[in-house]
Nucleic acid binder design. Structure first.
Lengths: 346, 346
DNA sequence: GGTCTTTGGGAAAACGTTTTCTCTTTTTCC
DNA sequence: GGAAAAAGAGAAAACGTTTTCCCAAAGACC
């Protein structure tokens, strides 16, 4: 027989109070370190609680006190790749461990509960989440706008909006580092292949690329920026073939908007008998775990995913605990150039 | 000024009742499709609720009705790689979408809340989760044992225990397919390099490997099974070097316990001037997304991660909704051989 | 028309906390 | 020693639901 048959009854605050000859209120005060309680009583309660492993019902507590110690996570809906996307998964992981260290937990925001649809904001109110992390979202999504403009503290590691704190990589710097590297390698004809510009990161890098190229006086024909229709391997592959058809002569270096795109780019080039890096060099962006195991190992701009997640957690928790009014604020996290074979001298 | 200043007051069931000249009880009955309510009233309530987007406070509901529509997820603690592990992330993702389709949501079980430590079981009771998914866990962890032996419905996609439903790959079949493939390629001297056998999957594959090798009458010296000290690239790399030192002559094929190990194995071999697949073949296990982009692309045994997650969800939700007594039950999900370059003819 | 059911809906007691008062008792201070 | 202040603890009212009774009205039946 399974042990559940003898499942102990859940211990409530009343049980504790009774066992100690106190009132529930007093016990509550001890547990929450609030209110005034005598030293002796305090100690007695603390000991009992520790010994018997009492812990307050989360739901009752939240219901009464409107503090849930819960962070809602918006992982967008765009297809259900979510957790399988290494870059976002990394950020979420470090955010998660950071908030957990401070006693919070994360929960995914969904827009359906039972039968009826719910906006993100309604859901958050409903659940009384203390804050929201947007790890992947679209600026134009009204659901996201609503929650960002609401009274609920938010932070994003992806988008930038009014009233929203963002913790993101310094994309301008990233592109600059990439182009410095390219110039050092003697490359002048450079193409940027990136993902849909509906994603802020891609858009920003594309813009920075054009600006930088111009400033450096490097050639910037229209075809120098190619937008792939997605962000995976296949998108990079197809975009590359398309690009090669457009241009008279392949560029000397291709800067990808992400590592996954770069993988596709490299394979597409190879399929056209162009060797990387001998005939053409390729740089990625992100430095996901696999970039260094790829062949050729991928030169890339490393985004500090761990730090982004951790910083986002700090910002959000401060905002929650200090009840600051919301305002737009952007924290840029430095990026780093990682040189590997894909831009190595042949 | 941000919209939060005018944040609408949350609508409660009382507001709805009042607006319609009804009692909260009646509204509740309509919302939950329970109890007896006249057709006209029912319709009136439904319309109002839909129009004004009322939705019951999750916490109040859970507190009263002991049904949370929430699944706790145990992602173990072993380092904090969790979400960054492609195999487990995939399973979790498909589990997540499957339960969300049925109106449940997932939440990560942590063993600390505020200041005090909590066992998984306590945490579950505290949160009133309806069920638990163990996506990565250790049989010997008392915390896990406790929750598995409790009255809370559980399902695992990793471990196998008494009173526990498991949805796992057919590892015996996987190893058989791998060895069939090896034999077809004319390999006899085969080594298995796998991860720590504290993980069920690794242990099972190692066992299956030895058994199968014996049954086939293939050579099975002690060194034929090498246990790496971890499950990442580096572990595979080091284990391979260690293995090569032990043996007089390298094996003809190495079967890895996971793709990530296989990546390390291949690179280690290459560092010793052994070409894959010409000099020695390598097979992975899992077929994570990157296996096909690796060079050489990795032959592997594909675990159907999507199906495992989905099936686990189905099993768990049925168990919850049908209130079946718990018992050990293993659902094996078929695996599939994927032939790629790492075992291709040179 | 008088009983017997059915039907629709409300009252109120939980669920397990937190928190604001209030009330004693004790301490402090001159 | 007495008044004022402080300290310690309890009572009770929320928080927003669900659910069990219970009661009145209406239908059904002979």
């Amino acid at each position: 027989m399974w042990k559940g048959d003898q499942a102990m009854k859940k211990m409530t605050i009343k049980d504790v109070a009774e066992a100690l000859g106190l009132s529930p209120g007093t016990v509550s005060k001890v547990v929450n370190n609030s209110g005034r309680v005598g030293d002796k009583t305090r100690k007695r309660v603390k000991e009992y609680v520790k010994k018997h492993g009492y812990v307050a019902s989360a739901n009752a507590r939240i219901l009464k006190s409107r503090l849930s110690f819960t962070i809602g996570v918006i992982f967008s809906d765009i297809s259900h790749v979510g957790l399988e996307h290494p870059f976002f998964a990394s950020i979420l992981q470090s955010f998660k461990t950071a908030v957990e260290e401070r006693g919070y937990e994360i929960v995914f925001i969904v827009s359906r509960v039972g039968e009826n649809e719910l906006t993100y904001y309604q859901w958050c109110r409903n659940k009384k989440v203390d804050g929201v992390l947007i790890v992947m979202g679209n600026i134009n999504n009204p659901n996201i706008q609503e929650v960002v403009q609401s009274e609920i503290p938010c932070v994003s590691t992806d988008i930038v909006m009014d009233n929203l704190q963002s913790v993101i990589s310094d994309d301008k710097e990233g592109v600059r580092l990439a182009l410095d590297h390219a110039e050092n390698l003697g490359c002048e004809h450079i193409t940027h292949i990136t993902g849909p510009t509906s994603s802020r990161g891609f858009a920003e890098r594309a813009a920075a690329f054009s600006r930088e190229m111009e400033e450096r006086g490097l050639p910037l024909p229209d075809e120098a920026v190619e937008i792939a229709e997605g962000f995976g391997f296949t998108s990079g592959y197809n975009a590359t073939l398309k690009h090669l058809k457009k241009v008279a002569r392949p560029p000397e270096l291709i800067l990808a908007g992400s590592d996954e795109l770069a993988f596709g780019i490299v394979r597409a080039l190879e399929s056209k008998r162009l060797r990387v890096p001998e005939d053409i060099m390729v740089m990625g962006y992100d430095d996901i775990k696999f970039a260094k195991h790829f062949t050729p190992s991928l030169s890339t701009i490393r985004q500090n995913k761990e730090k982004i997640g951790r910083l986002a957690a700090e910002r959000l928790l401060s905002a929650i605990e200090e009840r600051r009014p919301k305002r737009k604020e952007i924290t840029k996290v430095p990026v780093e150039l990682v040189k590997r074979q894909s831009t190595g001298r042949g």
